[in-house]
């Protein structure tokens, strides 16, 4: 079984849950920007939760099926069309040999996940099928999919009509609130700057991608004066190189915060004021350019509670879909 790519969309790539274990060598975990949506798409089809799917950002691809199978699309809201007929998101639906799957204009969110019964069966690289484009690793030759590509599909399990009750999804917010745990270098900026960071509205910059989400609109940060240590650059936002965690927020020059995401580097010479908590990282993967966000200060206890709550929500959905 295979699927032919007729049109690739903007930057559609094969993603699974990523390749943990190599970050210390500079190879990011990668994988889906919205891990929750990828898991849900796979659950709908009875796939392994971490099976490889297509992640399409802002624009959907156009795909032709070479055999009968089942498909589920989750994540952003984008009209789903099978031979031009509408299909629902967060729902497993059958497709027949020769049918074409395409998409309308993006309505809400940023990334859709297209799962196929059996999952995409490209070779594993360092334990994952995820595409890391900058490192030319994983996926199809380490690049986004292109017109004329053929996607090999694995052997499906038992598939039936399944639908996710949307009441089980995390409710959407406006403005989006991203919870932040201040970090090691928090004290590099003045108290007034610390307060402004959380008080002001920030807007997603159009440069935001799988490496990082850049925000603008807030005031430039004021640094606590110091003599730059040996080995650090001369800009007050420079440090002697440090490690970057998934979700950490670097602010080059103290102007535009960048939240490091799935394909980010593992370290560098800009200070990081803190990190977006893991429970909110999927939300970032669904932010369109020019969306307003607020950063909200939390402590470790709140961050861990939020992580537990997210796990609970996922388990509720898992129970609902596996007993259905």
């Amino acid at each position: 079984m295979a699927i032919k790519v007729r049109k690739p969309g903007l930057s559609t790539s094969i993603q699974d849950l990523g390749r943990p274990g190599y970050f210390h060598l500079g190879i990011p975990e990668g994988g889906a920007m919205d891990r929750f949506a990828l898991r849900a798409a796979n659950m709908l089809l009875g796939n392994d939760e971490g099976a490889a799917c297509l992640e399409a950002v802002f624009m959907g691809p156009e795909l032709e099926f070479e055999a009968d199978t089942w498909v589920a699309v989750t994540g952003a809201t984008m009209p789903i069309l099978l031979d031009g007929e509408p299909r629902e998101g967060w729902t497993a639906f059958p497709v027949s040999k020769g049918q074409v799957l395409s998409f309308g204009f993006l309505k809400e969110g940023a990334r859709i996940y297209i799962a196929f019964a059996g999952g995409i069966d490209t070779p594993m690289h360092l334990g994952s099928r995820s595409t890391y484009v900058i490192g030319a690793l994983g996926g199809l030759d380490g690049r986004p999919i292109a017109a004329g590509d053929t996607l090999p599909i694995g052997t499906p399990g038992k598939v039936s009509e399944r639908k996710l009750d949307r009441a089980l999804l995390r409710p959407s917010q406006n403005p989006v609130e991203l919870r932040v745990l201040p970090g090691l270098y928090w004290d590099r900026i003045t108290e007034a700057s610390q307060e402004r960071f959380f008080a002001e509205d920030w807007t997603v910059a159009p440069e935001a991608d799988r490496m990082g989400y850049r925000f603008r609109g807030g005031s430039p940060m004021e640094f606590v004066p110091r003599e730059q240590p040996f080995g650090a650059g001369s800009d007050p936002s420079n440090i002697v190189d440090g490690c970057y965690s998934y979700g950490s927020i670097q602010v080059p020059g103290g102007t535009e915060p960048i939240v490091l995401h799935r394909d980010a580097v593992s370290g560098g010479g800009y200070f990081t004021i803190g990190a977006v908590i893991s429970a909110d990282m999927d939300l970032i993967g669904q932010l369109q350019p020019n969306t307003k966000v607020r950063f909200v200060k939390v402590d470790m206890e709140t961050a861990l509670d939020a992580r537990k709550e997210r796990k609970k929500r996922l388990q509720t959905i898992r129970d609902a879909l596996t007993t259905a």
């Binding site: 903007l10 802002f58 624009m59 204009f105 993006l106 940023a110 159009p206 369109q288 350019p289 020019n290």
Partner: peptide, 9 residues
């Protein structure tokens, strides 16, 4: 002519 995607035009 509609915009196929979000961004800066």
């Amino acid at each position: 002519i509609q915009s196929p995607l979000p961004g800066t035009f």
